[in-house]
Simulated scan of single mutants.
Amino acid sequence: MAYWLIKSEPDTWSWDQHVKKGADAWTGVRNHQAKAHLNAMKKGDKAFFYHSNEGKAIVGVSEVVKEAYPDPTDKTGAFVCVDFQAVEPVKTPVTLATVKAELPDMVLAKNSRLSVQPVTADEWKKVRKMAGLK
């Protein structure tokens, strides 16, 4: 299993909307590095759900339920999407400031603008602990 972090602006697509929708396509990614990460995802992989811009914090955990396929919102046909399902909210949101202080080598700390990022197994365990999850 691999671990990831996916980012969304809460005024565009919030954790609460994600929970209510159930499994849904993660569309609109238009960065080639992020696209490569989406293509690498496998069913069952887990991802932290991060609120960008407003909040700047990890607020939940999602799971890949459908691997990469053409993004229906991309008229060029160059980009893909992945279906995610909400798994659990965090008990304590983990802010960008906390990640930068506690895990300075994490991609989120180094490249906070990238919308889809890999997370190492060690980072996954540490962030889950900071978030109050087992």
Rank of each mutant, 00 (worst) to 15 (best):
A68F: 04
T76P: 09
K100N: 06
A40D: 14
A23L: 06
K125W: 06
I6Q: 01
W124P: 00
R30N: 07
T98W: 10
I58K: 03
A36C: 04
V61R: 01
V59T: 13
A97C: 09
L96T: 09
L38I: 11
K56D: 06
K110D: 04
A47I: 10
P70I: 10
D24M: 12
E88I: 15
V82D: 01
K42V: 10
R30H: 08
A23K: 11
Y50S: 01
M130I: 09
E54P: 00
D83S: 11
H18V: 07
V87A: 07
L114F: 12
V94W: 00
V116Y: 08
A40G: 08
R30F: 06
E88Q: 15
E67M: 12
G77F: 06
Q117G: 07
K91E: 11
K7E: 12
M130C: 06
A68C: 08
T92C: 04
K126F: 06
L114I: 12
Y3K: 15
I6K: 00
Q17K: 06
V19G: 01
R113S: 13
S112V: 10
T92K: 15
G44L: 10
Y3V: 07
V19Y: 01
K134Y: 06
A121T: 15
D74T: 09
V59S: 04
W15I: 09
W13D: 01
Y69M: 12
G44Q: 10
Y50R: 02
V64D: 03
T76Q: 04
G22Y: 02
V90T: 14
V99C: 02
V94P: 00
K91V: 14
P10K: 05
K91T: 15
H37R: 06
L133A: 03
G44D: 10
A47G: 13
V119Y: 06
E9C: 07
N39D: 10
K134M: 06
R30W: 05
A36N: 10
V90Q: 00
I58L: 13
V107S: 04
K91H: 13
Q33G: 05
K20N: 11
